[in-house]
Amino acid sequence: MTARDRTSSRRFGRRALFFIVLISIIGAALLFTNGVGWPMTLTTFISGLTAAIGLDFTRQSSSQDPHRGVEIMGLVALIEENARTAVSSRLQGEPDDQTVSTITPALVAEGIWTSEDANEFRRVLRVRNSIAHSGPRSVTEKEVREAKKIADGLLAKLDRNGTSAAPISINERMPTILLVLCIDTSASIEGPRLNRLNEALNELAHSLQSVPLLANLVEISTVTFGSRPQVWRGDQEVSEEVENPFLAAAEYLPPTLFSAGSTSLGGALRTANRIIDARVKFLRSRGRRLYRPQLWVVTDGLPTDEWEAAADEIAAAQEMRKIVVYGVNLGRDERVRNVLDRLLPRHIYEVEEVDFSPILSILTDSIKSIW
């Protein structure tokens, strides 16, 4: 919504409130002059006033910008990145592994920030955490403005210390989460199960897009496997050699899946591993920060190709903390669980019908764990 649109909306809202109150007064007066008692007259007036208050609340809620907290997320991420650089010689271990509680005292000790600056940064963090945990509507526009002003000032102090990164957009300041859905579309996935799978993908897309933070952070690619692996960028099948098979969650439109053929799990795992590796290298070459990529493997049957070596590669990547793997055993077959176990997943979901709702909470928890 543009500034002009918001101004017009406010003017319309004020006029509507005025007319509702005016009509309530006139209606109450007419009732009283026609011999209706005070109780009914007062009830009519209060009903109109209640409607006006309800309209005003709705107008104010709808006028709030649901994306207003996104900039704070990016600013905090940039502060943390530059702060780690500023005190890296003082910190033990890799700078990227340091928490805010470790970095802030080091900044004060180095004379880059004052104790008051550290307290102000905690104010910004409270706003950021409130947005991350409860959504943008959990904070007021005034709180966001004040937090942004403080964050800009703290960044300026880091800039003077010579630690600032090259100017980049707000979205580029924010760490990215790569999400790959590796989904079995063999002939056994048919009928109601296939329908439910397509429904679950659409529900996932809607859920991610309803949370502005995740819509901005997450990039998704889908790898399906029947007789051969297929890579999808949104609802378009692409070659894995394309520049970027991932799509921002805000723009993600899931593919409509059809089932056929065998279960080429090994080929799908190798494909997923390659596209994750390529995207990670590309983003890092651009100076982007990343959370650990997530790979979700959904299957209901035993592999029909040479899958063991590919599974071991995924397990090794998991152990090296390059990715996080989750398995979905569709149908609860013990033999399928044994296959998924070889990937060393963080968790295996045993289900009869596909439900991607755990992805949303896990993505959110991933962000919280780093913040």
Results as ranks from 00 to 15, higher is better:
residue 278 A to T: 08
residue 35 G to I: 05
residue 348 I to D: 02
residue 274 R to C: 04
residue 305 D to F: 13
residue 277 D to R: 11
residue 202 N to W: 14
residue 256 T to M: 11
residue 269 L to P: 04
residue 308 E to K: 13
residue 257 L to M: 09
residue 97 D to S: 14
residue 123 R to A: 01
residue 175 P to M: 14
residue 46 I to F: 14
residue 131 I to A: 01
residue 147 A to D: 09
residue 182 C to W: 09
residue 231 V to W: 00
residue 69 G to K: 00
residue 11 R to N: 09
residue 297 V to Y: 04
residue 28 A to K: 02
residue 115 S to Y: 04
residue 360 L to R: 05
residue 299 T to M: 12
residue 253 L to N: 15
residue 216 N to I: 00
residue 228 R to F: 04
residue 320 M to Q: 13
residue 322 K to W: 10
residue 297 V to R: 00
residue 347 H to N: 08
residue 235 D to N: 15
residue 221 S to C: 12
residue 220 I to W: 00
residue 100 V to T: 13
residue 332 R to P: 03
residue 132 A to N: 12
residue 265 L to S: 03
residue 177 I to W: 01
residue 47 S to E: 10
residue 245 P to S: 00
residue 204 L to W: 06
residue 305 D to V: 07
residue 282 F to T: 13
residue 353 E to I: 06
residue 92 Q to H: 11
residue 288 R to L: 07
residue 100 V to I: 13
residue 202 N to Y: 14
residue 2 T to V: 09
residue 185 T to Y: 06
residue 242 V to S: 15
residue 302 L to E: 10
residue 255 P to E: 11
residue 274 R to I: 10
residue 246 F to R: 00
residue 355 D to W: 11
residue 15 R to N: 13
residue 160 R to T: 10
residue 114 T to H: 05
residue 200 A to H: 01
residue 30 L to W: 08
residue 159 D to R: 13
residue 228 R to D: 08
residue 187 A to I: 10
residue 243 E to F: 01
residue 167 P to I: 00
residue 363 L to S: 06
residue 32 F to H: 15
residue 131 I to Y: 06
residue 189 I to R: 00
residue 237 E to S: 12
residue 41 T to R: 06
residue 179 L to I: 02
residue 220 I to M: 07
residue 169 S to N: 13
residue 82 N to H: 05
residue 270 R to A: 03
residue 51 A to W: 04
residue 25 I to N: 03
residue 239 S to L: 11
residue 55 L to D: 02
residue 359 I to G: 01
residue 82 N to I: 01
residue 272 A to T: 10
residue 264 S to E: 04
residue 63 S to L: 15
residue 69 G to A: 07
